[in-house]
Structure formats: C-alpha cells, structure tokens
C-alpha cells in the first residue's frame, strides 16, 4: 500500500490536456487523496461546469493509478466548494507564465470581478501596455489579449 504522499507524487504526471505543462494538482483540480482500508479515493473538482477536459483528467488519474499497480480505487467528482483560480499554486502560476499564458488576477482583487481588470502583463515581454481583445479565448478558462508593445497576442487565464 502506498502513502498519500506517494500517490500525490504519482498524480503529478496527470496534466491539464489543454495546458500540458500544469498538473491537476497545480491547477487545484485535485482536491483530496484518501486511503480507506486498501482502497484509494481521489477527489477532483471541475474548473468550469462545462469543461470538456474533465473527463480526460479523470481518465488520466485512473491511468496513473493503474500504471502504478493500484487496482482498488475510486475517482470522485465534487462541485462544492466551487473551484476558483485562487487554488492555482504558485508553481502553477509560474508554469503558466513560462508557457505564455498570463496567470489570473487574485479574485480578492475586486476590480477583476467588476470587469475593470487590473493591468495584465504580457507573458512575452513583460509590458503592461496590453489590450483585451475578447473575454472568451481558446478555452472556457481563458481570455484573449494583445500586447501593444511587442504586438504578440496571448491568452490570459481569467479570474474565476
């Protein structure tokens, strides 16, 4: 039987299929690992209600457990408490930026919720002279920006 820490390490290889550099733990989708007798129970939560990547993440968890020889497991999906971008780890935010996606503002920043977004820095050149092109980007969780300094368009993980 493996420990919770070992299982957590093994689930590190399960990535968000849309952003393959960030693990489900960094994303905050992995909510818990419990050992009940000889069984492992993994709890995950969706980012958006209609996130099509959820089924793939669930399958990823199941594959990772099976590959490690764990047969007795259950993957449980919960809605509450509702996922928020505040659960993305510091490591996750760093990886997003490196990947070319501006990390989300903190939801406690009321400007983000009121629609008056604080300045979003370009992940390419760092300039804050950027412009929102569309609140809806390539996936449900991202908005589309363009940097006025280096002209590069980029995705921003939006506050949620």
């Amino acid at each position: 039987m493996r420990s919770v820490a070992e299982i957590e390490a093994l689930l590190e290889e399960v990535k968000d299929p849309e952003i393959p550099v960030i693990s489900i733990r960094d994303l905050g989708v992995l909510r818990g690992i419990e050992l009940i007798g000889n069984s492992v129970e993994v709890t995950i939560t969706p980012t958006y209600s209609g996130c099509p990547a959820m089924d793939m993440m669930r399958a990823g968890v199941e594959d990772a457990l099976r590959k490690a020889g764990i047969r007795d497991f259950k993957v449980k999906q919960v809605l509450s408490p509702a996922w928020t971008t505040d659960w993305i780890s510091a490591e996750g935010r760093r990886k997003l930026l490196e990947y070319g996606i501006a990390p989300p503002p903190h939801s406690a920043d009321i400007r983000a919720l009121k629609g008056k977004s604080p300045a979003v820095a370009c992940p390419q050149c760092g300039s804050t002279d950027t412009e929102l092109l569309s609140r809806f980007g390539s996936t449900a969780c991202k908005a589309l920006y363009q940097c006025k300094a280096c002209k590069e368009p980029f995705d921003q993980f939006k506050c949620h």
């Binding site: 969706p46 958006y48 209600s49 209609g50 569309s134 390539s138």
Partner: peptide, 20 residues
C-alpha cells in the same frame, strides 16, 4: 471570429450547467 468563440464558450458553460 472572437464572437464565434465567445458564443461557443457560453454554450459550453450552459450545457455544462445543464449536465449537472
């Protein structure tokens, strides 16, 4: 293009809520 993407994203949200 941006509106095409916006509407399909909104549709996805609504259908996701529907599933629940």
């Amino acid at each position: 293009l941006e509106e095409d993407i916006a509407q399909t994203n909104i549709a996805l949200d609504l259908i996701g809520q529907t599933r629940n």
